[in-house]
Write a protein that binds this DNA or RNA. Structure first.
Ligand code: DTP
Ligand code: MG
Length: 427
DNA sequence: GTCCGACTAAC
RNA sequence: AUUGUUAGUCGGAC
């Protein structure tokens, strides 16, 4: 069949060998688990090679039917459960290929105040924008979160807005089929239809969610409001509580009526910025601060990593502790406020010492255990002799793991009381 | 700048 | 077991 020379279809761009290869690389590097067909990433290249020409033909001629997504429930960080919808490895590759073509098409249209799921944009960007509004005198925050966001996306409304900039009918039809692919339980084995929602786990879902909530962004911009949005979580800055209350009421109505989305009444608030919590941070008039909640979670996992009953070597334990602190600080390090209650540095050192305390109390058996774990003999012996010697041991391990005083300082984990005094204007 | 791996965070 | 997008840090091959 001869195509008109000048315009190649969108579907051909998606199925382009280079694009498909890039999509497969991405799915492979994610290392995710299989969907309903049970085909793993390792098995996929072999199994798909013979079937690919047929699948490609089906996609080009509009008769490809995606597999339903696998329902897996995982705990949310905030408590409660998250219902994932895991597509087949094949469908993840195809959706990824679609997303790679559609992202550059839609992204330029999106709002400057939209920060979630977008290339070149981050949670930090959203935080800095909110902070700049706070600094310029907006002291009240309307914090809104949507209920079961991905699961409640209305197909018709979404497809209408997708179709306004994507004109290609075959691709639109394929996206529609992905939305209606249905879900299957692992044990049940029966397909349940999905008349609403986009799967939490589909590579295309984040982009689709942004296309839908772009309608919200334009409404907020039309009203000339100061806001930042990250996925379904957004903050609108106002100068008074009353103003915030009416905005929350009107935006709730807008979302319900125009987009058929429900705002989470319990999670959504209007409060002075010190009480608001957005992407793990809160704000004072001058500073960005990590939330109490995020900080407590940090302490909890450090406790976990330094608990005595963990059958791994000290090196590995400290390595894990180091990378965790490094990663955590990487995100939360933009906080300009350090919690005053306790020196994290001192506390950390105490936790590290705890790892060895028990070993010191039972020298004979522990020394042997230490040797088994690959600890050099001289250190193992020192560990069994005295608490003072033990200190040398833990210090040496800590420095071997890269957690020197200088490193801790670099992480912002020393002189915390001093910094706090500065923050309060006492020094 | 591309690609690979480990980890952290937000949703 | 746990999917996806995005950002970041570290290490490696060009
Ligand atoms: N781990 C994840 N994997 C895939 N998608 C996710 C993940 N976390 C969040 N999302 C997507 C799907 C969610 O609908 C959307 C908003 O997240 P979130 O507000 O935490 O949950 P939710 O809106 O589905 O339920 P809730 O009613 O508790 O707010 O972001
Ligand atoms: Mg939500």
């Amino acid at each position: 069949m001869e195509q008109p020379a000048l315009n190649t279809s969108m579907m051909e761009l998606i199925l382009d060998n280079g694009n498909m290869h890039r999509a497969w690389k991405q799915v492979k590097r994610n290392g995710g688990s299989p969907g309903v067909d049970g085909i793993t990433i390792d098995q996929f290249p072999q199994l798909v090679r013979s079937r690919w020409p047929g699948i490609r033909h089906a996609l080009l001629h509009g008769y490809y039917i995606p597999s339903p997504v696998l329902r897996v429930e995982i705990p949310k960080k905030s408590g409660g459960i998250r219902k994932l919808g895991i597509p087949t490895v094949l469908d993840r590759v195809i959706q990824q290929a679609i997303a790679q073509v559609l992202n550059p098409l839609f992204d330029p249209e999106f709002s400057d105040s939209s920060f979630g799921f977008r290339p070149g944009r981050s949670a930090h960007g959203a935080i800095h924008q909110v902070h700049s509004y706070v600094a310029s005198g907006y002291r009240y925050a309307v914090d809104v979160d949507l209920e079961k966001f991905f699961d409640t996306v209305d197909h018709d409304i979404l497809m209408h807005h997708v179709g306004r900039t994507l004109r290609d009918k075959p691709v639109l039809r394929l996206i529609g089929r992905y939305l209606r692919a249905g879900v299957m339980d692992k044990c049940g084995g029966v397909r349940v239809p999905t008349p609403i929602g986009t799967p939490q786990g589909g590579p295309l879902s984040p982009l689709l969610s942004n296309i839908l909530l772009h309608q919200l962004d334009t409404e907020l911009e039309r009203r000339q409001l100061r806001f930042a949005r990250y996925a379904d979580d957004f903050v609108i800055l106002t100068k008074s509580r009353a103003e915030g209350d009416t905005i929350l009421r009107e935006i709730t109505a807008f979302l319900g009526k125009k987009l058929k989305l429900v705002v989470n009444q319990t999670k959504s608030t209007v409060a002075p910025i010190q009480k608001c919590s957005f992407l793990g941070f809160t704000f004072t008039a001058k500073k960005i601060c990590w939330t109490q909640r995020a900080y407590q979670e940090f302490l909890r996992t450090v406790k976990q990593l330094t608990r005595r009953s963990w059958g791994v070597s000290m090196q590995y334990r400290l390595y894990r502790l180091k990378v965790y602190i490094q990663g955590w600080m990487n995100y939360y390090g933009i906080s300009q406020f350090y919690r005053p209650v306790q020196s994290i540095d001192e506390w950390l050192r105490r936790r590290i010492r705890m790892c060895y305390w028990k070993q010191w109390r039972y020298p004979r058996t522990r020394v042997r255990k230490l040797l088994e774990l690959g600890v050099p003999r001289e250190y193992a012996v020192i560990a069994g002799s005295s608490s003072k010697a033990y200190w040398r041991l833990s210090k040496s391990y800590a420095t071997n793991a890269g957690m020197s005083n200088a490193w801790l300082a670099q992480q912002g984990l020393v002189n915390i009381k001093q910094l706090w005094c500065k923050a309060q204007g006492y020094s």
